[in-house]
Amino acid sequence: MGVFKGAMTVRRYRVEGEVPEDFRDRFLASLQDHAFRDPKNPAPGEEHVGWCLIQNLLDVDFSDRDKWLFNHFITAALRVDKRALPAKLFRAHLEKRIAAWLAENNRQRAPAAVKAEIKQLLEQEMMLKTLPRVATYEFCWNIVDGWLAFHATGGAPNDLFRKLFRQTFGLILTPSSPLDLLMDEPALVEGMEMAGISDYRPRGTEVRG
C-alpha cells in the first residue's frame, strides 16, 4: 500500500527551504549517501535506517533517476530494520553456556564478569543468524509545490523520516496543520486561532463520561 498501489494512509508535510537548481545530481548523491546499508555488527534492539527504492526494498542504488524522479515528483522509501533475539531461546542458550563453563572450570558459581562475557559473545553469535524485522514507509515529494506525502501516520516512523530527510536533503519538514488549509485567508486563520472550545453536549448533560 502506498505510492503506486493500494489505499493511502498519509501524513502531509510542508517542505521548508529551497530545492537547489542542480537537485538532480545533488539529490542523487545524497540518496546514495543515505541509502540503506546492512549493518556489519548489529546489536539487539538497534534500528538501522536508510533509503531504498519504492519498487523493491532490496534496491538501494539510486543511480538510475528514472526509478525515483518522476517529472516533479521524488519518491523513495524509508527502510527501518530492527533485530531482536528470541528472549526464551537466548536465555536457554545462555544457561547452557554458563553450565558448560562451570563444568569446565569445576566451579559452583560463575563470576559476574564471566557471565557478562558469555552473554556478549552469545548475543553476537546469535545476532548474525537472526533475520531483521523490516518495515518500509514510502514518500512522494512534489518539489514544485513544496509538499510531501509520507505514507505512515505513526509517531515513530514520522520522527525517523523527518530526521533522515533533513540529513539527506538539508530541508526541514513541517507537518501540515489544518490551519495551513486556510493560509490564503489570514483573517480566517486568525479567527480560528482565537476560537475557544465548543461544548457540543446538550444542556443539562455536561458531565464527562
Binding site: 513541517t174 489544518p178 490551519l179 486561532e193 482565537m194 476560537a195
Partner: peptide, 19 residues
C-alpha cells in the same frame, strides 16, 4: 484554548480538529 505545538513545532489546535 488548547494549542498544541508539541515536538512538531507546528500548532495543531486539536480542539478545532475534533470540532
Amino acid at each position: 484554548m488548547s494549542k498544541d505545538a508539541g515536538k512538531d513545532n507546528a500548532p495543531t489546535h486539536p480542539h478545532l480538529t475534533a470540532e
